[in-house]
Amino acid sequence: MAGHSESHVHPVSLYTRTLWWLMALLVLTVAAGFIPNVPNWLGVVIALTIAVWKATIVIMNFMHVRFSGKLAWLFAGAGFFWLLIMLAFAFADYVSRPWEPFHGWPE
């Protein structure tokens, strides 16, 4: 059952390792912010990739999702999945607006 593994005590090294990773990524993201002449979009991609990475580590190790039952996975996943739905569908509108042709649609 889920509950059994959740009350399992994990070794300290798990948390320490996670902390070092987080610190390394923090340095990385700040450093990436100071690289000169990075195109704006690339900066965003780098920053968000590192942020997602950090968040994943926190969710998996600190929040113990990695060791949790299906239900915790389901709930943790649902939030981010629905967020994705919201972002994808709303941005789809903005992205596709300029696609509409100006000279009339081909018959």
Binding site: A2, G3, A72, F75, A76, G79, M86, L87, F91
Partner: peptide
């Protein structure tokens, strides 16, 4: 065991709620 998983799942449901709460404002910011 039932109580503990209930609290855990309940907290996760609350976190899901928080994710969408902050997510909407991130969308506007984007």
């Amino acid at each position: 065991e039932q109580q503990n998983t209930s609290y855990l799942i309940g907290m996760w449901a609350f976190i899901v709620q928080e994710v969408l709460f902050f997510g909407a404002i991130f969308a506007a910011y984007a």
